[in-house]
Design a protein around this nucleic acid. Structure first.
Lengths: 143, 143
DNA sequence: TATTGTTATACTCTATAACTATA
DNA sequence: TATAGTTATAGAGTATAACAATA
C-alpha cells in the first residue's frame, strides 16, 4: 500500500475501474488492429447480427449510449457498408438495421479477435473470480 | 441471463468493465459539475499536491498515460493557474510541478466531491467486496 | 406529449510522429 | 543512446441542444 504507484489515490475505486478499462482498450487496439473495428463498433454489429431489424434507440439503451452517440457509430458502419437500414412499416419513426454480407464477414473475424482478447483478460482469474467480478461490475451500471 | 439487456454480449467481461467505467464517468460529470474539473484532472492535481516538484514523466507512468496526453492535461491546468512549473536544477530536462494556492483550494473542493462520489460507488458493496473488486481490477492494469 | 432519427457542435481522452534539449 | 518535454495532428467516445417526422 505504501509503495502503490497510485500513492494517495490507491484507495479510490473509480480510478481502478478507469485504469482497468484503459488497459483493456489499449490491449485490444494494439493486438487486433487488423480487424479494423473498435470494441464499440463490434458490440453494435454483434447486436444487429443477433437481432436483425433492431432500431438505433434500442441499441442505445442496451449499450447505455446517447442517441447522438449511437448515430455516429451507425454512420461509420453504414459508410463502410457493414450495415444497411430500412424504415419500419409498423412504426415509421424507426429504422431497422441489418448486417450486410460484408458486415457478417467482418463480425465473424471480429468475434475471433474478441475471443482471443477475452482469453487474455480472463487468464488472470479463476472462473469463479470472473463470475464475481462480472456480477460486481454489473451492480455499478445496472443500478 | 436469457433476458440480460446485453444479450449475446452478456458473457464479455471487457464490456462490463467498459459499461461500469461509463456509468462512473457519467455520475461524476452529472453530479459534480460545479467542481469544474474532470476525474483525470483531479487525479493529477492530487498527485502534484502530495509530491510537489514531481515531473510530468512520473505522473504519466503512475497514471498510465502517454507523455503527450499528460502534456495536454498539464497545459489545461496551467492555463487555469492551478499548477506552476519550475525547471529542475538537478536535471535540466525535468520540470517540477507544484500546486498554486488556487490549485490547492480547487483540490480541496475536488476531494470532497470525490469522497461523495466514492460513497455513491461503494454503497453497493460490502467492505470485503470493495477489497476484492479493487484487487481484481488491479490485476488487469498491473500485469 | 413522447419517441425516433438527425445534424451541428464541442469537449475529453488517447495516441503517434517528429522535434529539441539534456543526460 | 535514452530521457524529458513539446507540438501538431488525428481519431474515438461522449454529450447537449435543437429540429422534423411520427406515434
Amino acid at each position: 500500500m505504501a509503495d502503490d504507484p497510485l500513492g494517495p489515490l490507491a484507495g479510490i475505486l473509480g480510478l481502478r475501474v478507469r485504469l482497468a478499462h484503459g488497459a483493456i482498450q489499449r490491449h485490444f487496439a494494439e493486438n487486433f488492429a487488423q480487424v479494423d473495428l473498435t470494441q464499440k463498433q463490434i458490440s453494435l454489429l454483434w447486436l444487429v447480427g443477433e437481432q436483425p431489424g433492431v432500431a438505433q434507440a434500442d441499441l442505445a439503451r442496451r449499450l447505455q449510449m446517447d442517441r447522438a452517440t449511437t448515430m455516429a457509430l451507425v454512420h461509420q458502419l453504414e459508410r463502410r457498408a457493414l450495415i444497411a437500414r430500412a424504415r419500419s412499416r409498423a412504426d415509421a419513426r424507426r429504422i431497422g438495421l441489418t448486417l450486410t454480407d460484408a458486415g457478417d464477414t467482418a463480425l465473424g473475424h471480429a468475434r475471433e479477435a474478441v475471443a482471443q482478447h477475452e482469453a487474455w483478460l480472463r487468464g488472470r482469474f479463476t472462473d469463479r473470480e470472473v463470475r464475481q467480478l462480472s456480477e460486481m461490475l454489473t451492480r455499478i451500471f445496472d443500478a
